[in-house]
Design a protein around this nucleic acid. Structure first.
Length: 735
DNA sequence: GAGCACTGC
């Protein structure tokens, strides 16, 4: 979207600005919760939640999950254990400690609703440990994100006055600190789902606490489904006619605590039939919420006008604007800069800070520096500022009510690709955004949508399991002898989506005609990779290029992008890229980068490597992460008896052939009009402009993924011989 | 000519 810069600057005429700015309705929705813990009732009496209304009332305003802050107060001086214990006892949850322990003792499953700052994530595991409720087992606390798991563990170790890794530890990918004496273990949900594959009853855990359950990540959902089954088995629960559930004696019972911060906690309660629902109040400063009196057609323009309204009419304090993506952020940053330069000279200055994930690391850190005197910081952020990063000093939030969402369109519905489109946020997301204004003191949140629009929003986001490709999870489940169709999930994915993943796994050779897992499938599941890439690794053993394929797939599965983008130095970037460019396309270009980096790493110091990356516009974080992934993949190879050192030297064909086995469904042929048509499937696609093969008119290609934004783009593209498509054409006939 | 956010023994 482009924002037309208005010819007549708004600020030459204050009146016209006033007229043009959105008008606000004060909904009287100021959050009146106390911020002092003294008045907080830690736990509501007789705390069975009778209706969702009650929760809604208490939760009115903003709350939300917040990982690191929940643990909280990391900035507080933690050097003296006595002070720590005092802080612990002052947390809102502390008042309800005894009641909580009683409830945990009496119930197998508890759903604990807690607001930001209640301290539930750090305190509940300690209560369980200190009260002896965990027996001899380990208390697992799962988190959707790695940073949350590690920083929470560090905080709790400090509170327990023990070394991290002793009685309190953590386990996330590539990083773990725990020992045989570890009793409280913070871990990512992906990690515990992986553990299911070797211990399907999770028998070493006596309590599993699922934190941030409302986020409904794919792995959280799979974990919750498995926990329900495990509970029946370990707690010896049986259905007896007329009596309902009857508990027998159990030698190693399990307790499950679901922690959530949303409005729809009842769903968890219903899923775990008869689970007790408890509510803990949080600690958050009041945030006054304003809704616009009418809908805003152009949210970027409305955000701009609202920012200047705050800037001219409200006391100092930084402004955080939530926008859906980089494009809007860049355009709004430009207009704000243009207009702020036209402000009267005695007016406060404006410092704009764009923030989004793909931005170079140094650029993002600008927002954490203290705001200079006589300046108002204006942070323009994507959803990254909603959960992942907390920015200090924010007093005003402008919420456009929009975000981008990735959604998988099943292959058999004419899709087989992801869409990345702008859509309305949810109520819980809106509250989370508003809450960002009240972290350090009272704040204001300006919503660029009406109160009716807010009420019309979905309560919370659709679970990820409904929106993403399921092939990876289905393969994992098949290893456990389970199936998506029979697993008791909170929300069942669409039939098309499950069928689509079955087809993909069948065509990759991971499942047979009876939908049973094959030996290749088992090998694939052992790799922490997307099925398409684990298939390529296995194929590489036939073509003698395992080393090269591992180099490539580790970069492809790293979370950060390899190539740094910089719109200002476009020419320098493309010149630096040229050095690594390979005629076959993006996969071998990546291999060139990896090889070059390895060579540099031999001779250069740490700072030398860093400088080399900077000079070539490469993201070293991606390369370092890829190194970790490659080490892990090599270990997996060793376990499976695959020699990871086998190399094809300078030859290109074996690498492309191996990748082709994994990307067999991702092939396309050039059409006369310059577009590509899928070899298997109906979609007409275009090569993404970031690809080295863009505009190269390559007759036949394989690609890593398709993403629909303005049109369907193929990303991560390599040239293949046309004959290759014929080989896989026969595959198509078989199906 | 274009890039929401996470994550994996």
């Amino acid at each position: 979207m482009s924002v037309a810069v208005k010819q007549s600057p708004l600020f030459n005429d204050r009146k016209s600005f006033k007229r043009s700015r959105p008008s606000w309705v004060d909904d009287g929705n100021e959050d009146r919760r106390q911020k002092t813990p003294s008045k907080v009732t830690g736990l509501s009496p007789n705390s069975h939640l009778k209706s969702p209304k009650k929760a809604r009332k208490s939760l009115n305003g903003f709350t939300g999950p917040s990982k690191i802050e929940d643990s909280g107060r990391a900035s507080v001086n933690v050097s003296k254990p006595l002070q720590i214990q005092e802080q612990r006892s002052k947390l809102p949850i502390a008042k309800g400690k005894e009641a909580l322990i009683r409830e945990f003792r009496e119930n197998d499953v508890t759903v604990l609703l807690g607001e930001t700052g209640s301290g539930k994530t750090t305190q509940v595991p300690q209560y369980l440990l200190e009260s002896g409720l965990a027996g001899d087992g380990i208390i697992a606390v799962t988190q959707p994100r790695k940073v949350a798991a590690t920083s929470l563990a560090a905080r709790v170790a400090t509170e327990q006055n023990v070394n991290l890794g002793s009685s309190v530890g953590y386990s996330v990918r590539f990083d773990e600190r725990f020992s045989p004496e570890t009793r409280i273990k913070y871990m990512t949900d992906g990690m515990i789902v992986r553990e299911l594959m070797s211990d399907s009853l999770l028998s070493k855990y006596s309590v599993v606490i699922v934190d941030e359950a409302h986020e409904r990540s794919l792995r959280t959902d799979l974990l919750i489904a498995n926990l329900k089954t495990i509970l029946r088995q370990r707690n010896n629960i049986q259905d007896v006619k007329g009596k309902g559930k009857v508990k027998g004696n159990a030698s190693n019972p399990l307790k499950v605590i679901i922690m959530s911060a949303t409005l729809d906690a009842e769903k968890f309660g219903l899923f775990f039939e008869g689970a007790k629902i408890l509510y803990v109040q949080g600690r958050q400063h009041p945030v006054k919420i304003y809704h616009s009196s009418q809908g805003q057609v152009d949210y970027v323009d409305a955000a701009m006008r609202t920012f200047f309204q705050i800037h001219t009419d409200y006391p100092p304090g930084d402004v955080l604007i939530f926008l859906p993506g980089q494009e809007d952020i860049e355009s709004l940053e430009k207009t704000i800069q243009i207009y702020s330069n036209q402000l009267p000279h005695d007016h406060m200055l404006v410092l704009t800070c764009p923030m989004y994930a793909s931005q170079a690391a140094g650029q993002n850190s600008k927002v954490f520096h203290p705001t200079p005197p006589n300046t108002r910081k204006c942070i323009l952020a994507t959803n990254i500022a909603e959960t992942s990063i907390t920015i200090p000093g924010v007093k005003y939030v402008i919420d456009t009510g929009k975000c981008k969402e990735k959604r998988y369109l099943a292959r058999n519905t004419g899709g087989g690709f992801d869409t990345l489109l702008i859509r309305d946020i949810t109520q819980s997301s809106a509250m989370q955004r508003a809450g960002r204004a009240g972290r350090e003191g009272a704040g204001h949140c300006f919503r660029l949508y009406t109160e009716d629009a807010f009420k019309a929003m979905a309560l919370s986001a659709e679970p990820e399991i409904m929106r993403c490709s399921l092939s990876s999870s289905l393969l994992q489940l098949k290893c456990l002898g389970q199936d998506l169709e029979t697993l008791d999930l909170m929300d069942q994915p669409a039939d098309e989506s499950m069928k689509s993943s079955l087809i993909v796994l069948f065509l990759l050779g991971a499942l047979d005609r009876e939908k049973e897992i094959t030996s290749v499938g088992r090998q694939m599941a052992a790799f922490p990779l997307e099925p398409v890439y684990s298939r390529a690794v296995i194929a590489s053993t036939e073509y003698g290029c395992t080393q090269e394929v591992l180099d490539i797939v580790s970069v492809l599965s790293a979370s950060s992008k390899l190539f740094v983008e910089s719109s200002e130095q476009r020419d320098a970037v493309s010149e630096a890229r040229q050095k690594f460019r390979h005629v076959c396309g993006d996969h071998l270009t990546i291999l060139n980068v990896v090889k070059a980096y390895q060579e540099i790493a031999q001779s250069e110091s740490k700072s030398g490597r860093k400088e080399w990356c900077r000079r070539h516009f490469l993201n070293e974080r991606a390369l370092l992460e890829a190194n970790d992934i490659r080490d892990q993949l090599r270990q997996t190879c060793q376990r499976l008896g695959i020699d990871h050192r086998v190399s094809c030297g300078e030859k290109d064909d074996p690498v492309i052939q191996s990748l082709g086995h994994g990307l067999a469904l991702n092939m396309a042929l050039l059409q006369p009009d310059g577009f590509y048509k899928q070899a298997i499937g109906q979609s007409v696609v275009k090569i993404h402009p970031s690809s080295t093969l863009c505009d190269k008119k390559t007759p036949a290609i394989i690609y890593d993924e398709l993403v629909y934004t303005n049109q369907i783009y193929a990303r991560g593209v390599s040239k293949i011989p046309k004959s290759f498509i014929l080989t896989f054409g026969t595959l198509k006939l078989q199906s």
